[in-house]
């Protein structure tokens, strides 16, 4: 199991926890989604994760980010010291506040819709 998988598994476990569980999306530092979008596009996040946060693939899957259940601490950890082939973003090029802004942006994305509402996905 890779470090990313461990982080993702931890995120899912935390996401399923009680309301008092630390590290949930709503416990993230305050971020500016509009600024986060600008950083997301300017610093190349969209190159692998898509403009809508839909994810993609490089040598392996690039995780879907729209409304990620990953808590902020795990998200920041992945940005700072990524598993697999993701570029690392040091504090010199991306501040903690930048990461909080990006996190706010991906949480603000619409995410999944209802596939049943799209006719060609149900033919």
């Amino acid at each position: 199991m890779t470090r990313f998988h461990l982080v993702a598994a931890a995120a899912l476990l935390l996401g399923a926890g009680s309301l008092a569980t630390p590290g949930r999306a709503q416990d993230a530092p305050s971020g500016d989604a509009a600024k986060g979008k600008r950083i997301y596009l300017a610093d190349g996040c969209f190159v692998c994760h898509g403009r809508s946060g839909q994810g993609g693939a490089y040598n392996g899957p690039s995780p879907l980010l729209a409304k990620t259940p990953m808590p902020f601490d795990g998200f920041k950890g992945q940005v700072r010291a990524p598993s697999n082939d993701m570029p690392a973003y040091s504090e010199a090029v991306m501040s903690d506040q930048d990461i909080a802004d990006i996190y706010a942006f991906v949480q603000s994305l619409p995410g999944r819709g209802n596939a049943k509402d799209i006719a060609i996905l149900n033919d």
Partner: peptide, 18 residues
Amino acid sequence: ERAKSDATIGWDASPITT
């Protein structure tokens, strides 16, 4: 079913999703 759900993300976006 999971893929169909994932496919809805950015459904109306431009540039067009794959």
